[in-house]
Structure formats: C-alpha cells, structure tokens
Amino acid sequence: MTQGGVKTRASFPSTEWFEAVRSLVNSDEQYRRIGTCDAVVGVKVPDRQKYYLLTFEAFECSEVKESTEQEVDNADFWLEAPFEKWKELITNVKDNGKADLHHTLNTIDLEDPQGFARSRDGYKRDLFYRFNQSFQYFFDLSSKIETTFPN
C-alpha cells in the first residue's frame, strides 16, 4: 500500500518506518504550526541492537537514518526503551489515533527511573522538553501507518 509515494505499511524498528512518519510529518500543516524544531534525536532499541538518528530542522524532519549506538550517544538526546515498550507505545498510538494520557512521551519518560529521553548533556536533554509537542506529534502521526512488529 502506498499513499502519495509514502509507504503506509512498515515494520518497527526500521528506516522505512521512520521514513514513512517523516513523510507524513513533512506534509502536515498542523505540524508546521507547532513551530520550529531543531534537534538531532536518537532512537535506541537496545534489545534489538537497532539505532536511528532523526534530524529535525526548522519546520520539517529533514533526515532519518539507521545509525550506530556510538553515533546515537552523540545526538542531542536519544529515546531509549526495550522493544516491548516501543511496541506498547506504537500500538497505543494506533489504537487511540494518538497517545492516550498514559502513553505520552513525558509519561513514559517519568515512569522509567533512567528516563525515556536520555543524554550525556543536561542542556541538550532539555530539547526533549523544548520541542515536546513536535516529538509527540511525530509519534502520534504513526497512527496512520500499519505497523508490524517482527518477532
């Protein structure tokens, strides 16, 4: 299935999945209206040894790519959770059309003693807060994707 050239079916975690969300975000007027967002955000799924870098620039998500853990450690901050937790998050978004009150990025972050958003730099970690609505919107848009989860 494709829609406007965007793959709407993708497995998580994969570059295709992030690429699909990126396309959705970049063609979404509402996302622009949240405001500028400048950050390099890492994604870690450690139990699958999967690492990604998402680059947000001005009013768009300019790049997504698979990466190494080392590179992700140098991002402004990264989101880290075991695969099952990611699955829970994405499934919840899919089921509700967006994250429900118990699956917002902030809530997930709070519930993990180590935090969902992590960084080696206390200043850069705050970008997670500064652009919180944009990141939330990014993941909420994944509700428009048929996500599959490989075993």
Binding site: L101, T104, N106, T107, L110, E111, D126, L127, Y129, R130, F131, N132, Q133, Q136
Partner: peptide, 23 residues
C-alpha cells in the same frame, strides 16, 4: 508530574505546553 497525572486531554496539553516554555 502534572502531565503524568492529567485527567483529561486538556490538562495533558496544558502541562506539555508549559514544559516547552519552561525548557
């Protein structure tokens, strides 16, 4: 914390937006 205990979309949004400003 407010976002965490939010009882409605409204509260959840209020706190998230305040988080951004405070950041």
């Amino acid at each position: 914390l407010g976002e965490y205990v939010a009882h409605s979309e409204a509260e959840s949004n209020i706190f998230r937006l305040c988080i951004q400003d405070t950041a």
